[in-house]
């Protein structure tokens, strides 16, 4: 990145922070709210899992380990993809006009104008602490290889979810609204991904591997460390494919996005 790009990111950050501190109480309340909401979520998952004791061979900590990957990737995701997640509003209000009028990359602007650092801190902290606790409990052995694997898996997981947001964002150029589709393609899939995919029907499993590859965000990376019995039915290579799948689907979504911009209609006054 060029130095003036980094400088601009800094100015965006300063601007966002300044706007936040116009409503100081609001900002603090909001990050607290994010943290509490997510933490409650974790507690609920914990209590639910306690009931099962064992789900297709996964114990409570193994399943929390599975979940920690969701939290962690989401924490990183919303630093960079909040603008794409909420892109429908931007398009409907015609605010995409402004991005198009600036001599800067479109995705670059969407990402850094809307970067949600506060919420990211909330999600990220939760993800990391959940991960640290559970990784110890499930007996992950750390060495250079596993650390590298883990970093790439997180990166791939962020890209997979980012690609879904990017795809949905591009669809806003064609459709009146994409909120219900986002519910289906992202949030519902994410809820499924909180449990080992082997507990679901064949259709949902296929969907989560081949259509909306959420299984690569957390199930397969978790399997890489845990090697639970239920994973034996899936191709062995899946354990290593997260970064490839991430890069691949992101590229596809990006090409679709590039193509779709021409259909932007702006808005009348």
């Amino acid at each position: 990145m060029q130095s003036d790009t980094i400088h601009l990111i800094g100015v965006y950050l300063k601007t966002t922070a300044k706007a936040w501190f116009q409503y100081r109480v609001d900002a603090i309340m909001r990050s607290l709210a994010v943290f509490l909401r997510e933490a409650t979520g974790v507690v609920v998952i914990y209590l639910t899992l306690m009931k099962f004791q064992d789900l297709n061979g996964w114990n409570v900590y193994e399943m929390l380990f599975l979940c920690s990957l969701l939290f962690l990737t989401y924490g990183i995701l919303i630093i960079f993809f909040t603008g794409l997640r909420d892109f429908g509003n931007t398009v409907r209000k015609g605010e995409f006009d402004r991005y198009l009028l600036r001599p800067r990359g479109l995705l670059f602007q969407i990402i850094f104008v809307n970067a949600d650092w506060f919420a990211a801190v909330g999600h990220g902290c939760l993800g990391i602490s959940l991960f640290l606790v559970t990784a110890g409990k499930v007996g992950v052995v750390w060495n250079v290889g596993t650390v590298l694997y883990y970093l790439f898996a997180v990166l791939g997981g962020v890209l997979i979810q980012g690609a879904i947001f990017l795809l949905l964002a591009a669809l806003n150029f064609y459709l009146l609204e994409t909120d219900s589709l986002k519910e289906l393609l992202y949030y519902d899939m994410k809820k499924f991904a909180a449990y080992p995919i082997s507990i679901y029907s064949k259709v949902i499993q296929i969907c989560m591997i081949y259509v909306i590859p959420f299984a690569f965000v957390n199930y397969f990376p978790a399997q890489f460390f845990l090697r639970k019995q239920d994973g034996a039915v899936y191709p062995f290579a899946c354990l290593y494919l997260t970064p490839v799948v991430g890069g691949g689907v992101y590229l596809l979504a990006y090409l679709f996005w590039r193509y779709s911009i021409r259909y932007y209609k702006s808005s009348g006054n």
Partner: peptide, 23 residues
């Protein structure tokens, strides 16, 4: 009909932002 200024911030801050955007 549509302002390009940052609603919550002083005018000068929007100008500073544009300075960075347009180099």
């Amino acid at each position: 009909q549509k302002s390009q200024l940052q609603w919550d911030l002083p005018v000068i801050d929007s100008f500073e932002l544009l300075k960075a955007i347009y180099r």
